[in-house]
């Protein structure tokens, strides 16, 4: 009887312990909830790393040209995007003249700025089309199907022969 009592008590302790743990994890998960939701909010605020995406485009897409990072001081001059429109970004350009291959990824200051960046990049593509139309018709295909997307305050441009790959990387 004594043994049975001890066995029953031990079983009860285990059950209570288990329930308490679950309850504890519930409560701990409740206390973690604010942190989790703020992390989610933060994630919603920063959903893209423009520079990292530019790097991935450069490394994962096959290029004919050799791409080099464009110095920040040259971005407005070459690409036409003013520095006061973005907080982060990266541009890769080719050797110039051989191909129209290019990458430009920006995190705009806000959505309105991103719209302006889109406009500038559209102008860039049109200028390139004009430059290449009579001399390298093959590049017109790339320019005609250039990947240019705006996602919130982010803008991504990729002029290459692998548009599907580029879109996959940009997400």
């Amino acid at each position: 009887m004594k043994k049975q009592f001890i066995a029953a008590a031990a079983a009860l302790v285990l059950c209570v312990g288990g329930l308490a743990s679950c309850g504890g994890s519930d409560s701990s998960s409740k206390s973690d909830a604010p942190a989790a939701s703020s992390a989610a909010e933060a994630q919603a605020d920063v959903t893209k790393d423009a520079a990292a995406i530019a790097d991935k485009l450069k490394s994962d897409v096959v290029w004919k040209d050799q791409l080099n990072e464009l110095e920040s001081a040259m971005v407005e001059k070459i690409i036409g995007v003013k520095p006061d429109l973005y907080t982060a970004g990266k541009v890769y350009i080719g050797a110039g003249g051989a191909t129209a291959e290019e990458i430009a990824c920006f995190e705009g200051k806000d959505e309105a700025a991103a719209d302006s960046i889109m406009e500038a990049l559209n102008k860039r593509i049109e200028a390139q089309k004009k430059a290449f139309e009579n001399y390298v018709p093959g590049e017109l295909d790339k320019l005609g199907s250039a990947v240019l997307v705006k996602q919130g305050k982010y803008v991504f441009m990729c002029i290459s022969d692998e548009n599907d790959k580029a879109k996959e990387i940009i997400g």
Binding site: A54, S72, K90
Partner: peptide, 10 residues
């Protein structure tokens, strides 16, 4: 959150 590395100064 992923930290955005700013490559281009504004």
């Amino acid at each position: 959150p992923i930290s955005a590395v700013s490559q281009v100064t504004s």
